[in-house]
Amino acid sequence: MTVQQHSFSTRPDSKRIDACFARLQAEGRKGLIPYVTAGDPHPDVTVPLMHAMVEAGADIIELGIPFSDPVADGPVIELAHQRAVSQGVTLADVLVMVTEFRKKDNVTPVALMGYLNPVEIMGYDEFATRAAVAGVDALLTVDVPPEDADFLVEPMRKAGLEAIFLVSPNTADERITGITRVAGGYIYYVSIKGITGAGGLDTDAVSRRVAHVKSMTPLPVCVGFGIRDGESAAALSKTADAVIVGTALVQELASHEKPADAIAAVAAKVADMRTAMDR
């Protein structure tokens, strides 16, 4: 199947995510999207870490909403959720962090990623309004099927937020078409079956599948799960519009006692991936 030649155009009033992919395309580059759990390892670390990752080459930031039962995540990110939850970090705190980040950076898109429960507790309309004011650009809720997401997507759209959805290796074409109708921002392609951090990444097989998904949607297609280093990031970026890395960064963050060392180590890993992707 022939891959569509996407053109991510932008206008002066374009949303941050649209503008980001239009810029990347104009520069002939692919996006790098790091994920970290908000509040891990300490609430004071998150905003400086976000800025450090942008300086190291991140194009979009995915910020995890702490949750007590992150069933789709592997042990590394699950522990990050536990550390954040144990310090009382809530969705409201995450929005405060994004507000603080926006004081210095009003360009880099921020997508929240997590589970429905915290959003439901806040209230869907309340969340959408407060998230938009804070400077959030999108939300991905891993436990909300796109076929039944109107209750969440509609208030988000009214507030100008994008709803990001997952496509997996075994998602049928008919469902991909349906996801494309309700999704915004970008499609998150899960490169492997299983939880975050799982091994067994076959970059050739993923690239073929990504090419197929791209032929079915005008949205950027970004690949996550299983990307651990510059080599895997560079390999997948040849086909994908962006690569998403989480477990490797969260693991790096947890391996340093001093916050400054942790931030520097994560930034160095992001920079290494950025360099590999730009070669």
Rank of each mutant, 00 (worst) to 15 (best):
residue 243 V to H: 06
residue 207 S to E: 02
residue 137 D to V: 07
residue 111 A to Y: 05
residue 6 H to D: 07
residue 161 L to I: 05
residue 223 V to D: 05
residue 237 S to M: 03
residue 109 P to F: 08
residue 216 M to P: 08
residue 11 R to T: 14
residue 252 E to D: 11
residue 264 A to K: 15
residue 152 L to A: 13
residue 86 S to R: 15
residue 274 R to D: 09
residue 53 M to K: 06
residue 133 V to W: 05
residue 239 T to N: 04
residue 134 A to T: 07
residue 41 P to F: 10
residue 25 Q to H: 13
residue 92 A to S: 14
residue 204 D to K: 14
residue 241 D to K: 10
residue 105 D to Y: 08
residue 55 E to V: 12
residue 3 V to P: 02
residue 51 H to S: 10
residue 26 A to I: 00
residue 129 T to N: 11
residue 208 R to F: 10
residue 43 P to F: 02
residue 256 H to Q: 12
residue 231 E to Q: 14
residue 238 K to L: 08
residue 19 A to V: 03
residue 149 A to C: 07
residue 14 S to C: 00
residue 146 P to H: 11
residue 246 G to M: 05
residue 58 A to W: 04
residue 103 K to S: 13
residue 69 D to W: 09
residue 261 D to E: 15
residue 63 L to R: 14
residue 47 V to L: 02
residue 241 D to E: 06
residue 14 S to K: 04
residue 175 R to P: 00
residue 83 R to P: 03
residue 62 E to M: 12
residue 171 T to R: 02
residue 63 L to A: 12
residue 262 A to L: 08
residue 114 G to P: 02
residue 169 P to Y: 10
residue 139 L to Q: 09
residue 85 V to K: 12
residue 150 D to V: 09
residue 80 A to S: 15
residue 194 G to S: 05
residue 257 E to H: 15
residue 15 K to V: 06
residue 8 F to D: 00
residue 12 P to S: 07
residue 56 A to E: 00
residue 153 V to A: 12
residue 263 I to G: 00
